[in-house]
Amino acid sequence: MRPMLASQGTAIPAGPSWVHEVKWDGMRVLADVHEGQLQLTSRTGKDVTATFPELAGLALETEDALLDGEVVALEGGVPSFTALAERMHVQDRRRAAALAVVRPVTFMVFDILRLYGVDLTSRTLSERRATLERVGLEGAHWRVPPVYDDGRLLQEATRENGLEGVVSKRLSSKYHAGRRSSDWLKFPHRATDSVVVGGWRPETTNATRLGAVLVGRPTSTGLRYLGRVGSGLTGRAAVQLLDRLGSMGSDASPFADEVPRIDADGTRWVRPEVVVDVTALGATHGGRLRQPAYKGLRADLTPTDLLETEG
């Protein structure tokens, strides 16, 4: 099963038909508990159980359940995607266990899709939420965050506290696995996009260090160029990304459209296989990202996944 996805909203809905949640800056995960075993699955269907060993205790919370939520890495009480990016790609159990001690994650559970063998996806969100609260999940590394009646007030509170935004959900909505629905609406304070790296540029003062990446969005006609991203590419994040790109060199640009000379000059092209998250203040009339900033490597996504969710 793949999780239900939210659509981009334009105005936060009001009234008793909706509830509102904090939009967590993390990694979407389904947690399947059955007969004392836990399996964690990413949004794309990848098994990430070994990646987050601190969540193993969920298997003791209930005999059988399928939970939907977001894995986050908290720094000062605020989710940090940069910190989470260090965890997302790790599959080696020993390495994952060591990271779980120094950079632990928290699983924010916001939905329940099965309990004691009963499929709950055809029930309304209000029914599923009541069931989730009765289960009483509360541990050192997992919790059920509250929902709120006033979405606009929550929007202001999340902005003031440095959180990513708000998700508004219709109480009568059923769970449509693998589909993007207008019954769930997302309102990020700064839009986040998953994009594909098509090339990188070295720092002007050090040719061995990563200074910027050229990114695009997969479409049915090829990789469409979105612009150059340099902000946020510092320290360990830059080293980690360059390690991934270093062996992917290509002789030609992977973009289907023409890259402006000012961006293309000095760029080292790569095979379009690496997905990263960037934030931006929308797009220009020419389709370029406005003031983009690098957030982190998305080891859980492939370019094909982005194409499948296009639009």
Score class of each variant (00 low, 15 high):
5 L>F: 10
149 D>R: 15
263 D>S: 07
130 A>I: 00
292 P>T: 14
186 K>E: 14
65 A>T: 07
50 A>G: 03
66 L>F: 02
181 S>R: 06
118 V>L: 11
134 R>A: 06
212 A>V: 00
113 L>K: 02
19 V>D: 06
116 Y>Q: 13
2 R>I: 01
149 D>A: 15
24 W>L: 03
14 A>H: 13
124 T>D: 13
52 F>K: 12
6 A>D: 02
256 A>Q: 07
167 V>N: 08
259 V>C: 00
60 L>W: 02
310 E>W: 14
161 N>R: 15
157 A>N: 13
286 G>N: 14
64 D>E: 06
239 V>H: 04
34 H>E: 11
106 T>L: 03
225 Y>M: 09
303 P>G: 02
143 R>Q: 15
288 R>D: 09
195 V>C: 11
152 R>A: 09
44 T>M: 06
172 S>F: 00
83 A>W: 05
58 L>Q: 01
34 H>D: 14
192 T>A: 15
218 P>Q: 02
306 L>M: 12
16 P>Q: 07
217 R>T: 13
267 T>M: 12
167 V>R: 07
243 D>H: 13
297 L>R: 08
180 R>D: 05
207 A>M: 09
273 E>Q: 09
163 L>Q: 07
71 V>F: 00
222 G>S: 13
127 E>F: 10
257 D>T: 09
297 L>C: 04
112 I>A: 06
171 L>N: 09
163 L>E: 05
165 G>W: 07
135 V>A: 11
71 V>W: 01
248 M>R: 09
16 P>M: 09
45 G>I: 10
98 A>D: 08
74 L>D: 05
191 A>T: 12
96 A>R: 00
